[in-house]
Structure formats: structure tokens, C-alpha cells
């Protein structure tokens, strides 16, 4: 399993070598402490798109989480309520949580949304792709940061 090493300021094309041919290449990122301080895309995400994505079933978030989404009748309770997550965590901490929650807690059930290696038996239509794109992650991070209480 070739996972990013949590060394400060280590910025390398970590996944390029192991991504299957033809797969979308993951952008490099650097982990500093328990955060990824720099945007994966180099720009800020879109708050409105981020909220829309979180409540979409295909992003899988509200399968497990609930949050300030009164219009959503079906939310999960396997995971903390997302309300206030921007108050509890910095932008960079939220980014690492989304990119690779297992990096912070190896036993977590929260999937790693921006990772393609170290996974077993991924189905053909998902193989070699991260669950979310870098843009989608940035949109969601931008939205989560606004959840102050």
C-alpha cells in the first residue's frame, strides 16, 4: 500500500506511479500535521455547489451523516452531525478529512474521497477513480467551512 507519508511539507506526485493507465491522475497534495493546508485545485471552491453536492446521494455523505439540511428526509446517523464542523475544524483539517480520513484514523468507516490506491476489488466502473474530483472536494470544503455552529 503506497499511501502519502505524513511528513511536513512533503509535496509529491504521490499517486501518479500507481494509478492505472487511463485513470484520472490525482493532483499532488501535501499533509502538514493533521491538515492539507493548500487547495487541491489552487482555487477556492464554490459554497453553493458544495452544499448541493453534499446532499446528493451520489456523493454518499448523507448516507452516514446528518446536517443542517431540513429539506432532506433521509439522512444517516452513522457519523457526527455536520452542523458546526467549520467551527470545530480548520479548512485544511476538513480537506484532509475528506481526502483521506483513514490517514487520521485507520479504523474509520468514512471512505477516503481522493484516493485510488490501497483499495481491494473496486468495481470496474469505479476503478482507478477517486470518489470525488479535486473540484468537488474543494466545493464541499468551502461549504463545510461556513458551518460555524
Amino acid at each position: 500500500m503506497a499511501r502519502p507519508v505524513p511528513t511536513s511539507f512533503l509535496v509529491a506526485a504521490l499517486f501518479a506511479a500507481c494509478a492505472p493507465a487511463g485513470a484520472e491522475e490525482l493532483r499532488p497534495y501535501g499533509i502538514v500535521g493533521d491538515a492539507i493546508p493548500v487547495s487541491l485545485t489552487g482555487t477556492k471552491g464554490d459554497v453553493t455547489r458544495g452544499r448541493a453536492l453534499i446532499v446528493e446521494r451520489s456523493s454518499t455523505c448523507i448516507l452516514c451523516h446528518s446536517g443542517p439540511f431540513p429539506e432532506q428526509a433521509f439522512q444517516g446517523d452513522l457519523a457526527p452531525n455536520l452542523s458546526g464542523s467549520g467551527g470545530r475544524w480548520s479548512e485544511g483539517q476538513l480537506r484532509l478529512r475528506l481526502v483521506d480520513a483513514a490517514h487520521l484514523n485507520a479504523a474509520t468507516i468514512m471512505p477516503s474521497y481522493y484516493r485510488v490506491d490501497g483499495l481491494a476489488r473496486v468495481g470496474a466502473s469505479w476503478r482507478g477513480k477517486p470518489i470525488l474530483s479535486a473540484e468537488q472536494i474543494e466545493d464541499i470544503v468551502a461549504y463545510l467551512v461556513t458551518l460555524r455552529n
Partner: peptide, 22 residues
């Protein structure tokens, strides 16, 4: 296994008293 990296036990042993998407 899979892109979501979950095992059967994650849901059916550890979380069977909870709700998935309601």
C-alpha cells in the same frame, strides 16, 4: 472492499442499530 472501502461487518456487526440514509 470497493471504492467505499467498507466490510460487511462495518455495517452489520458494528452499526446495525443505526440508520443509513434514513
Amino acid at each position: 472492499q470497493g471504492q467505499l472501502n467498507l466490510g460487511c461487518a462495518n455495517c452489520h456487526d458494528d452499526n446495525w442499530d443505526r440508520k443509513l440514509a434514513g
